[in-house]
Design a protein around this nucleic acid. Structure first.
Length: 590
RNA sequence: GGGGUCGUAGUUAAGUUGGUUAUAACGCCGGCCUGUCACGCCGGAGGGCGUGGGUUCAAGUCCCAUCGGCCCCGCCA
């Protein structure tokens, strides 16, 4: 009897056995992916993380091998010893990396049996609740394993890059202090201080700034962050950031370092070259041309402002919107004849989600337009619009007239929607854009005050400082986001390093000195002890992995993700806790 | 907080205007089979339709509530 593992070590991964191993005796361990039992000869596809190889059980191998092989079922764990053989002529399987060879088994151990799995690893369309409940089986699927391997290589390349460039990785606390502003905190009750709570970090923001005050100069960390907000296809309550902070630098230095990181990551993980430097767009231009601050620039179809052309239009709606301070913008879908009348009407519902009360469209013909609004427009208007939009026969123009916010929002999203529908996006393209000059703060209708666009420690442009009191919405921030293929993959800023400027910022945010002192007192005090000029950035590791693996869901790049209701179907978290636990924390469920 | 969509054997789905014992494929179990690779052939088991109410002579099919998966708006500095 062979003593697998203790004496006979595995010699190869299944997927690594190849032509060069012909004639060798190998020892393989893995899972029975599929069996084909012919009564006589039995074939088993043996699978491990590196791939699949066909192992063959011949009747002449004896009962201890061939007899046992009849018992093998899906996902049994096997160890086999055997000789690698070139497959007989015409029996090769080109679909398999190892399809040129097979292993003739001389010894077999069934190391473990398996219940019949709830789903086949080959089925692609298993409902997600089943997949998540049996995540450990789901994670056996090669496609997901590939995602996690790439994620690991990405993290490794990142650490390597920062190590080479003089950065130090420092761990910051998970149990911290709840801060106002920003996302809802996950809270952790304190046993020792009854009635008090820690908060899990939304990001290590303040601590990394303190590390700059301490003189570490260049910090990075690959770190979990927690935000108790509602989930989306690209949002999980716990997610991973590549967090960076540097001292004695400007925006340019940070952007340059991060562009280098992107180049290294894409080169080492995917073999792709990134042309540097990366293109930039101001926030203002991004909104104006794409309607969003995370524009997908893999295709055109930019937003065109028609307000001047149609403000005196025969179409009353355009006239009224323009008169009341609104704007009229349009996008042009080229050669969009494939869109039916029904499609066009359906798009109305699509933009309604973003607050648009209507969506006008116009099919451009050789001499006129087919459009519900054509009859209201003067010929000169039609001509000017067509000219400004460079419209050609077969194009379709979409108009939205509303407040700037609604117009940009709805057309910006419609642009994306149409691009997908019309197949305008090259799935292999990598379109990076830096977005700069964000507004420092925006007015919040719900809070009835100005709130930070980025966070309250973001430095304003010095020349805009005087506006902080008079017109806070106009102050530009020294903040920057990196957008890749329409997804915000990172963002950061130059921080305020002087206490007096920080106080002005808090003041503009409506935070009193006492409030600021009680919430951020330790940071304010630190700024008084020789804080260097500093700034940083944080990247979303999960989103970056999504783009690199072409996955639609963040759950496909996280080993054990939460559902949209923030539950773990595998472990059944969250769960009730015992009265005893509650008592220790002096908590009562209301 | 709101909108949409889905929930029927282990899995993926079908299920007519409510009407006998709820279909299929794959999987599973048993038998046969020495070159398959989605092996093949023969036979078989398996669910009462997410859950709880209601309407009806009769409910996967209609109504109400509720639970859960997914997508979106709000939210996410």
């Amino acid at each position: 009897m062979t003593d697998f593992i203790t004496k006979d070590k595995r010699t190869h991964y299944c997927g690594d056995v190849g032509i060069s191993d012909i004639g060798k005796e190998v020892i393989l361990m893995g899972w029975a992916h599929r069996r084909r039992d012919h009564g006589g000869v039995i074939f088993v596809d043996l699978r491990d993380r590196e791939g699949i190889v066909q192992v063959v059980f011949n009747p002449d191998a004896g009962d201890a091998v061939h007899g046992q092989a009849h018992r093998i079922r899906s996902e049994f764990v096997l160890a086999v010893k055997g000789k690698v053989r070139k497959r007989p002529d015409g029996m090769e399987n080109p679909a398999l990396k190892t399809g040129g060879i097979e292993v003739i088994v001389s010894e077999l151990e069934i190391m473990n049996e398996s219940k019949t799995p709830p789903f086949s690893l080959d089925d692609v369309e298993i409902s997600e609740n089943v997949r998540l409940k049996y995540r450990y089986i789901d994670l056996r699927r090669p496609a997901i394993q590939q995602n996690l391997f790439l994620r690991s290589r990405l993290a490794s390349a990142t650490r390597n890059y920062f190590d080479k460039n003089g950065f130090i990785e420092v761990e910051t606390p998970f149990l911290g202090k709840s801060t106002p502003e920003g996302a809802r905190d996950y809270l952790v009750p304190s046993r020792i201080y009854q009635g008090m709570f820690y908060a899990l970090p939304q990001s290590p923001q303040i601590f990394k700034q303190l590390l700059m005050v301490s003189g570490f100069d260049r910090y990075y960390q690959i770190v979990k962050c927690f935000r108790d907000e509602d989930l989306r296809a690209d949002r999980q309550p716990e997610f991973t950031q590549i967090d960076v902070e540097m001292s004695f630098i400007t925006e340019e230095d940070i952007m340059q370092i991060m562009e280098g990181l992107m180049a290294v990551i894409f080169k080492s993980c995917l073999g792709r070259e990134i042309a540097l430097p990366l293109p930039r767009l101001t926030y203002r231009d991004a909104i104006s041309r794409y309607g969003k601050d995370n524009p997908d620039v893999r295709f055109g179809m930019e937003l065109v402002d028609l307000t001047d052309i149609v403000k005196n239009s025969g179409f009353k709606l355009f006239q009224e919107v323009a008169a009341s301070g609104g704007i009229i913008k349009a996008i042009k879908a080229e050669k969009a004849a494939s869109l039916s009348r029904k499609d066009l009407d359906g798009l109305k519902d699509y933009v309604a989600v973003y607050g648009a009360k209507g969506l006008a469209w116009a099919k451009v013909n050789a001499a006129d337009w087919t459009s519900p609004i054509y009859k209201f427009l003067q010929p000169a208007e039609v001509g000017n619009i067509g000219k400004k939009m460079n419209a050609k026969e077969g194009d379709i123009i979409f108009f939205v007239a509303d407040t700037p916010r609604v117009v940009n929002d709805s057309l910006g999203n419609l642009r994306l929607h149409l691009a997908k529908k019309l197949n305008l996006i090259d799935p292999e393209a990598l379109a990076f854009t830096w977005i700069t000059e964000f507004p420092l703060m925006e007015y919040s209708d719900t809070e009835k005050r100005f709130v930070s666009t980025h966070h309250p420690f973001t430095s304003p442009f010095l020349e805009d400082l005087p506006l902080l009191k008079s017109d806070p919405g106009k102050v530009r921030a020294r903040a920057y986001d990196l957008v890749l293929n329409g997804s915000e993959i990172g963002g950061g800023s130059i921080r305020i390093h002087r206490k007096d400027v920080q106080a002005q910022a808090f003041d503009a945010l409506g935070l009193s000195e006492e409030e600021a002192r009680s919430k951020f007192g330790f940071l304010l005090e630190a700024l008084e002890y020789g804080a260097p000029p500093h700034g940083g950035i944080a990247f979303g590791l999960d989103r970056l992995t999504m783009i690199m693996t072409h996955t639609e869901s963040i759950r496909d790049v996280i080993a054990f993700p939460k559902t949209q209701k923030a539950a773990c179907l595998l472990s059944e978290a969250p769960s009730k806790v015992s009265i005893k636990q509650l008592m220790e924390l002096s908590l009562k469920i209301v």
